[in-house]
Nucleic acid binder design. Structure first.
Lengths: 247, 247
DNA sequence: AGTCAACCTTGATCGAGATCAAGCGCGAAC
DNA sequence: GTTCGCGCTTGATCTCGATCAAGGTTGACT
């Protein structure tokens, strides 16, 4: 298999980093500065975007596609530590070495900003710095919620939790207002789900079948999920029913 | 049992937040501003410092003692998501609701800063904002390393990893230069260790006994640990031997 | 249409860690 | 000194999810 080339392109709509509102409060001249240091990269499914330890010369925002953050032990055991969906931020402002592997799952397009000028801009522009801190705190909250899942939830609860999270992200809906029937496509293979949940792919498959047989979800093909009653799925996660009202 | 009062005191040496170098680059006038908004709080063992959902009117730095961050499910399953040792930072700049429970394990003293003025200072002082982002990224790295532990490590590896981390923090040594023989006290009960590692207290006890019988550690009493060969303990963690060189 | 390789499902069995249970050690309070 | 309670250890048994194994399904390519 030939290693696919990273493709660069120059078309840009409006500032993609705005996806996460980094520049919601940017003035016109600040947006112009971002334009100057911006470029695009595309990756094919399966391609590694970043290796742990790589020197990073950019930070980026996911424009389209799905990628994963993962860590690996010497003997091959791997654990996904994050899921990157459109509008998510990639990179560690102020750090030049990658701490995780980043892998494209579907075709991925990143909107990249050259690191050095981006960091200089951060210093001059407190609201960008504040927004980055806020996003990092969001990631920290997500990581800690995942710690509870990994440490204390059953396989069935883990699957239900993952489906809930993907449903919320994929359906664009404002998180907690989801109700009634929901449909979406799984962007992950059973194996990737297993790596995210600290399970094996067989257990993932079995628990998905169990949720299907219990009437909690419908499976059309292997990736398309219909949830007839979203509240029912949430019950299966083991979370507080009012979870998510905070923060 | 009467609920112990929180005690306040006013003595202060030099800026405690400097423990994590937040104000390593602070000018004299900035230190003076910090003094103006600073006060101390003390907590007794077992006392809850912060409840999830509390409105926080301060951020703080741990001066002495040990506290834990934890999350709980409705049915009582709990998972520790962080350990607070002296010099660690508590609180979420820019957020006023606590996302976790914080509990004192030993007697704890916090150096607190009133939130509002602290945040105003952050905006005026880019190097404080930068330092907070850096600390938050450190916490995120630690959380993700813990995700690998929770999802993929065996009970024995989990115990060895925890002992390694505590040894590094407790012995003040600059992390990776530890070698040869190391001795320290465990600040946690078996149950707290279990909540941190996603295990039961019986399993923790058994694995500690197993490490003792294997000659990896010596136990004096129930809390004092002697590690005759630190490299040997690290082997038991399952981590890359060179782990920690990055970051 | 036929082939091949991913990806997924399901069954049988195994084993690490949970659960249930009993007892020990030690410091605090009387 | 005795008692009490908490934290810890150890044993017996059980269970959930891992592991090993055998097909089934789908879609891309020839």
């Amino acid at each position: 298999m030939s290693v696919p080339e990273i493709t660069f392109s120059k078309e840009c709509g409006d500032c993609p980093i705005r996806h996460r509102a980094v520049c919601a409060r940017c003035e016109a001249d600040e947006l112009e500065q971002l334009e100057q240091i911006k470029y695009y990269r595309s990756y094919d499914p399966g391609q590694t975007v970043i290796w742990l330890g790589d020197t990073m010369d950019f930070v980026a925002s996911v424009v389209s596609g799905v990628a994963t953050l993962s860590q690996t032990m010497e003997d091959g055991r791997t654990q996904m530590v994050g899921l990157l969906l459109p509008s998510d931020f990639v990179g560690r402002p102020g750090r030049d070495q990658a701490a995780y592997n980043v892998k494209a799952i579907t075709p991925v397009t990143l909107c990249c900003f050259r690191r050095k000028p981006f960091e200089e801009m951060m210093v001059r522009t407190p609201h960008i710095a504040a927004r980055l801190l806020e996003m990092t705190l969001d990631e920290l909250d997500a990581a800690r919620e995942w710690m509870l899942l990994l440490g204390r939830k059953t396989a069935r609860e883990k699957i239900a939790s993952l489906l809930t999270i993907i449903a919320r992200r994929e359906t664009q809906s404002k998180a907690d207002v989801l109700q009634g029937s929901v449909a979406f496509d799984l962007p992950l293979t059973r194996e990737a789900m297993a790596d995210y949940l600290g399970l094996t792919l067989e257990t993932v498959s079995r628990q998905i079948s169990a949720l299907k047989n219990g009437g909690v979800i419908e499976l059309h093909g292997t990736r398309h999920i219909v949830v007839p009653d979203f509240a029912r799925l949430i019950e299966e996660t083991g979370d507080d029913s009012d979870g998510g009202l905070l923060s």
